[in-house]
Simulated assay, not measured.
Amino acid sequence: MNWSYSIGKVRGTELRVHITFFILLIWITVAAWTADGMQAAVTNLLFILAVFACVVLHELGHATMAARFGVKTPDITLLPIGGLARLERIPENPKQEILIAVAGPAVNVVIWLVLTLVLGAVTQQGALQSLEDYTQNFWGRLAAVNLLLVAFNLIPAFPMDGGRVFRAVLALFMDRVKATQVAARTGQVIAFLFGYWGLVGGGPILVLIAVFIFLAAGAESSDATMRSLAHGARARDALITSYLSVAPDDTLQTAVNAILHSSQSEFPVLTPEGRFAGILTRESVMAHPEPEHRQQPVSALMIRDLPSVTPETEMETVLDAFTGKYVPAVAVIDRTDRFMGYINRENIGEWFILSRK
């Protein structure tokens, strides 16, 4: 995710913090300091950090259960609205998806039990209405938040945990794509209700959550439909074979000329022997428009170590290659290591639209 920064790894999963999370911390600290002084600011800051530690443990619960089914979790990103664990894929077995989805809330239940039974935290009636009150018991407030996380995440608003359970249950009785579409529409209806509640008095965070759920549900539905269409398709079906290429030793002026005389967004970088070396993007060249950069070699700006597939590679594998870190294109190379062309996100989208029956 753009604008996020790594803070370490846990069992192969990278922990990342989005810049907006730091903005949230600053806002909460300044607001508390202005209203009640330094003690309130420090206490509320520590409380928010404790809450997000629970969120990280929640996401690691998903990752741990997913690992049991051979699914890796490349990274977890902290956002102001919570955590986001990015699984490399969602198991198609509905029972496995249910177990992965409920593993996160189960961690919060365990945290609540530890806070209650070990630390003696008491979750008082109305505690959720006074979470911002730093004079309330710290552990009691944290216990209340974990109960809130359990209840909130089990709302059947796809792609939240409860929504994934809902989709998995539907998939026991219908096609997975149809189940995803039903769950996504349900999630968007709930998102609309969240947004309305936020606008009439629930607060801006609810509106932000509503927007996230609405957009994420639509994206998940489109992805499920695309992956269904990808069954039986091969990389060659979306292969771009007509293109302008540049060489690693060409100057950026050569790339500028190519940009001006084509509509390409990506330019394959090929060695004199015709081997694939990387991709030069229109965006990277346009980011250095100054004349003094024009004599730099293309190799200085090209993106290396991109995924490569063969023409017979399944389309689902191609889609997986675009998941995660920024990948502008996937190279298609035959068994003799000869470059045959490339596939970019735009062409995947065009293939998806034109392949529908």
Score class of each variant (00 low, 15 high):
residue 172 L to C: 10
residue 68 R to L: 00
residue 183 A to G: 02
residue 269 V to L: 08
residue 73 T to W: 14
residue 341 G to T: 13
residue 8 G to F: 02
residue 274 G to D: 09
residue 115 L to C: 02
residue 344 N to G: 00
residue 66 A to S: 06
residue 81 I to E: 07
residue 343 I to L: 03
residue 207 V to Y: 10
residue 123 T to K: 03
residue 102 V to Q: 06
residue 34 T to C: 03
residue 123 T to I: 15
residue 251 T to G: 06
residue 55 V to R: 03
residue 154 L to W: 00
residue 290 E to P: 02
residue 168 A to D: 00
residue 137 N to K: 11
residue 54 C to N: 00
residue 249 D to H: 15
residue 52 F to P: 00
residue 354 L to E: 03
residue 308 S to C: 08
residue 310 T to K: 15
residue 59 E to T: 08
residue 156 P to L: 04
residue 320 D to M: 15
residue 102 V to Y: 08
residue 33 W to Y: 14
residue 257 N to P: 04
residue 290 E to V: 02
residue 141 R to M: 01
residue 192 F to N: 07
residue 98 I to H: 02
residue 86 R to W: 07
residue 154 L to M: 14
residue 237 D to S: 13
residue 336 T to G: 13
residue 107 V to L: 14
residue 274 G to F: 11
residue 292 E to D: 07
residue 188 Q to H: 14
residue 231 H to Q: 14
residue 75 D to A: 11
residue 96 Q to L: 11
residue 82 G to N: 10
residue 86 R to S: 09
residue 351 W to H: 08
residue 338 R to H: 13
residue 91 P to T: 15
residue 327 V to K: 05
residue 105 P to L: 04
residue 57 L to H: 03
residue 192 F to T: 12
residue 180 T to V: 04
residue 162 G to H: 06
residue 96 Q to W: 06
residue 234 R to E: 12
residue 243 Y to I: 06
residue 186 T to L: 12
residue 151 A to D: 11
residue 246 V to S: 01
residue 258 A to S: 09
residue 36 D to N: 12
residue 268 P to M: 06
residue 219 A to S: 14
residue 99 L to S: 14
residue 74 P to Y: 09
residue 250 D to W: 03
residue 69 F to A: 14
residue 47 F to D: 04
residue 63 A to R: 13
residue 22 F to I: 01
residue 259 I to C: 06
residue 3 W to F: 05
residue 315 M to H: 04
residue 112 W to D: 00
residue 87 L to K: 01
residue 246 V to W: 00
residue 28 I to H: 03
residue 215 L to N: 04
residue 84 L to I: 11
residue 99 L to T: 12
residue 164 R to W: 09
residue 24 L to S: 06
residue 10 V to E: 02
residue 309 V to R: 12
residue 223 D to P: 11
residue 299 S to I: 03
residue 30 V to L: 08
residue 160 M to V: 13
residue 288 H to V: 06
residue 349 G to T: 09
residue 146 N to T: 03
residue 80 P to F: 01
residue 230 A to K: 07
residue 234 R to T: 02
residue 266 E to T: 10
residue 280 L to E: 01
residue 29 T to S: 11
residue 146 N to M: 09
residue 256 V to D: 06
residue 329 A to L: 02
residue 335 R to Q: 15
residue 158 F to R: 14
residue 301 L to A: 12
residue 248 P to K: 02
residue 223 D to G: 14
residue 54 C to A: 07
residue 321 A to W: 11
residue 70 G to L: 08
residue 323 T to A: 13
residue 213 I to T: 09
residue 157 A to C: 05
residue 355 S to H: 15
residue 347 N to G: 00
residue 135 T to V: 05
residue 100 I to E: 02
residue 147 L to H: 07
residue 214 F to R: 11
residue 229 L to C: 01
residue 111 I to A: 05
residue 178 K to G: 00
residue 118 V to S: 12
residue 183 A to M: 05
residue 10 V to S: 03
residue 161 D to P: 12
residue 188 Q to G: 02
residue 207 V to D: 03
residue 218 G to S: 06
residue 164 R to K: 07
residue 177 V to A: 11
residue 215 L to W: 09
residue 253 Q to H: 13
residue 193 L to Q: 04
residue 172 L to M: 15
residue 63 A to P: 05
residue 141 R to S: 10
residue 40 A to K: 08
residue 237 D to L: 06
residue 289 P to N: 13
residue 332 V to S: 07
residue 195 G to D: 13
residue 256 V to G: 01
residue 63 A to W: 11
residue 9 K to N: 05
residue 154 L to I: 08
residue 159 P to Y: 09
residue 175 D to H: 15
residue 325 K to G: 05
residue 112 W to E: 00
residue 287 A to T: 10
residue 164 R to D: 05
residue 199 L to D: 04
